[in-house]
Amino acid sequence: MDFTYFSTHQSDVATQFGQHIELTVITLVLAMAIAVPVGTLISRFPILYTPLIALFGIIYTIPSLALLAFLVVYVGIGRTNAIIALVAYAQFILVRNVVVGLRNVDPIVVDAARGMGMSPLQIMVKIKYPLALPVILGGVRIAAVATIAVATIAALIDAGGLGQLLFEGINNGNNSEIEVGAAAVSLLAVLADIFLRVVDHFLPASRAGATH
């Protein structure tokens, strides 16, 4: 392994590392903002499950490069394009986990909550979401790693991030740059995974052993 590129371009690598994190975080926040309401809607009206999951499944199977290129036609190149594509990809994983998480909440517990006089909103906020959270967070963890991977390719449409190092390195025949880029992306993926596992560990529902 040759990391000489890193010693000569530390600030570039740091900037791109930061861009990659930013891209991932923005994507996950927006993706959750869509997936939680959609998943909640599906758990309320199960008939929606098959068509919506099929739709997200189809999007999920589109090769990332094809989707990014396709979106260029409508939104041009740049970060917006990448974020739209990444949010769309994440839906399949996130919505499914929100639905499964909510569905796995013990109906007995919900019955007790109703019987004690909680309103439907209180049951959602105080009981169902907290109990579904470990499963939802599991989805976020998978989606984060997938987003970090696909975001690398987004460098091709000028979205920034660590992918730049890889493509630049390939174009210039700079092996050290390629290796630094690859190592940095891998490191980011591993760190994201560890971080979200730690968060999960501190959730009340996980600590109580409420889910398996």
Binding site: D106, V109, D111, A112, A208, G209, A210
Partner: peptide
């Protein structure tokens, strides 16, 4: 007051 056979305690509390 409401008490059921399966108890239904909130496991995260």
């Amino acid at each position: 007051g409401y008490v059921i056979q399966q108890v239904g305690l909130f496991p995260h509390m």
